[in-house]
Design a binder for these strands. Structure first.
Lengths: 212, 212
DNA sequence: CCCTATGCTGAACATCCGTTCAGCTGGCTG
DNA sequence: CAGCCAGCTGAACGGATGTTCAGCATAGGG
């Protein structure tokens, strides 16, 4: 397991930290609305009143989780800019993210909730990810490692969606492809297909047909 | 506007139909859990008791909406098998679906909820869509209109995700690309980028890099 | 030693939820 | 006309939820 990637530390934590961790797990599993203050308290071995005492309100708990996770993601995803091909840096960041999701089982589910519940945090985060993806793709174009694109930002978004699909649409894909993204082979299978799609045109020289 | 594609008819409806329509709109806007029986009743101009009287329970209302929408989608999406290239049939079906989403403004939002709320209906529906997409892709391969694929089902899922992204990830994409999918040009912009991605390899002969 | 701040709790409160139920209405059938 | 039945309502019930509040324990500083 990870060292600096640790999220929850050992078992003996402050009650406040235990509350935060319990709320995080419950939100990842059931969503914000279905997570009750009483359930958080029970999971943390604490009275409901203490939850409010430490975080002010239920919304306070949710905000604390959000900033906590965002910081955690930034801390373990950013790197000290050691130069080189940005596309390789992107690749490294992706690998690190996958490792985090693999190590902290509920992280993927939580990020999915954050992105799909339509909360402003999720929207902004996704937008910044598209910014980054477009930037990297542009650099890759300039270096001749990618063909020129007429709508770079849209294609960058597509790259992002394809790469993030296992975490973004996790259950949907697991059910449709009969895989389990807790198993690492499912990830590599998806990566391989993605690589094939991006390095070899699916419809060479024809008009594309979409789904259903 | 459509004729046989009509969903809600004129204003003077049965109370039961008005309740169903109100519930549909509320679920599309706020999700199942945040939609209360009282809110449905108020929007339909009716007492909360009548909602239960007609549908048995809140779950009854939700089930009624689900089967109603599924039937509506099937009715307007299936065609009498007039032969020809399945890929073209697929294309036609897609266009029809887009037209439906454009005509019934909340349909996209509702389908999004259905797919992403993790309800079994949504999971099964997506799986069947992947089945269909894989089938069409296989046929296209056999006719030499698509390059052979080592993991056909995964690539079919990717096609589905890309094609469905505007409805599946609507708000996320709208915020990231500064578009509005109520405007038809946003759709065509997305379609064009998709077509470009599928007909011309983005990374010719290199390893693919995903997003952060 | 006292005293105060801190962490924490049990009980309660107001509010909202889904659902029930007795009863009202108006139009159709006999 | 009498009767009745489907459509519909207002008021209430039991339960769950977020939050408040007075008070308990306990450790640390004067």
């Amino acid at each position: 397991m990870g060292m600096s990637t640790q999220l929850t530390g050992p078992e003996d934590l402050t009650a406040k930290a235990r509350i935060r961790a319990a709320a995080f797990a419950l939100v990842a599993e059931r969503g914000v609305h279905a997570t009750t203050v009483r359930a958080i308290a029970q999971r943390a071995g604490v009275s409901p009143a203490l939850v409010i005492h430490h975080f002010g309100s239920k919304q306070g708990v949710m905000d604390a989780i959000s900033t906590w996770i965002v910081e955690y993601l930034h801390r373990n995803t950013r790197e000290p800019d050691r130069g080189g091909d940005p596309a390789q840096a992107l690749q490294r960041r992706l690998v690190r993210f996958e490792r985090m999701v693999a190590e902290v089982p509920l992280l993927g589910a939580y990020v999915r909730r954050m992105l799909l519940d339509g909360q402003p945090d999720g929207l902004d985060w996704f937008r910044r990810a598209v910014d980054l993806s477009a930037e990297e793709l542009a650099h890759r174009e300039r270096m001749g490692k990618a063909r020129p694109s007429t709508d770079l930002r849209a294609e960058a978004a597509m790259l992002l969606i394809l790469g993030f699909a296992p975490v973004l649409l996790g259950p949907l894909l697991e059910h449709a492809l009969d895989v389990d993204f807790d198993d690492e082979r499912s990830w590599t299978r998806w990566r391989d297909a993605e690589s094939e799609l991006l390095t070899s045109a699916l419809y060479p020289g024809a008009a594309a047909a979409g789904p259903p």
